[in-house]
Amino acid sequence: MARTLGILILSVLLLAACGRAQPVAPLQIGVRTANDHVPFYIADREGLYRQVGLEAKVHLIPSNTEIVEALQRGDLQVGAIPVTTAITAIDHGADLRIIAMTGRGSDGLLVRRDSGITSWTDLKGKRIATIRASILDVLLLQALEAHGLDPSRDVSLVYFQKLGDMISALKTGQVDATSNTEPFMTDAVRQGWGQILGYYTEQWPDHPCCVVVARGDLLREHPETVEQVLKAHVLAVERACADPAYTARVIVEYLQSFDPELVEASLAPEKMRVDYHLTQEEIARMAELMYRQGLLEHRPEETEFTDLRPLEQVLEGQK
């Protein structure tokens, strides 16, 4: 009985410890291995956080969901995640705000070169691999509708959890197309078996892809720390845009796969770009799109997802 009581008390204490405000120094930042997370890799390896007077540690985390969960628990204070993940988390009550962009574009539809699919209308009756409720899914549905296809009737959507599994399924003919991202798509083209049917920037030029989010308590209690993060982020984005060859080398260093030449090709302006600028309207547009697709429970307010003040302060200071 005493042991049972002990376990119960310990469980209560452990649970109660979750989600409490954490000390700010060193600031914990969570990112994934992805092309458009490169500003964080650059800021980390070039010491840009120290340069702006901030002690920060960048963690590579395997999935977007895990980044949000770590932010919610307080293990991380800042993170980079797809815009759709950020909107869904905030919609479900996570105390987070989008504070900057980190990448635009980069997602599209990949088919096999020998599939005979040369236009979007050829997709009728085909199986398309996607990750449910992800940015790849949201933009795929939008693109299908834009080309006059009903996603629930004209195609068969096959849900996966990982980008690599979708590539394997496409390569081996288990599916006819996959909604995917860079550098996987350029890699498939270079290997000779893949063909990019189109990028989603055709439907929404320069669409937001990954964003920077911060915990609400950090924004309220330590806005100066958020500004320091963004100062380093702006410097890193500028560095990334100025030298694509260097940027590709850094991505390869962190992804530990692909070759720099391939990654540099996948960074071409018509495919994707890293960026820090952010507008409330584009986030609201994405949220509205997700609401129409049934991924949000209530119609979103334009201002509920973003906090642009720190970025505006940083950009004002630069002038």
Partner: peptide, 20 residues
């Protein structure tokens, strides 16, 4: 996790992606 659209595992994975 592998290409199914029904099942309790799928339900939980999808819900996790949606923070439900």
């Amino acid at each position: 996790m592998v290409a199914v659209s029904r099942g309790l595992g799928f339900l939980m994975l999808e819900a996790r992606n949606l923070f439900r």
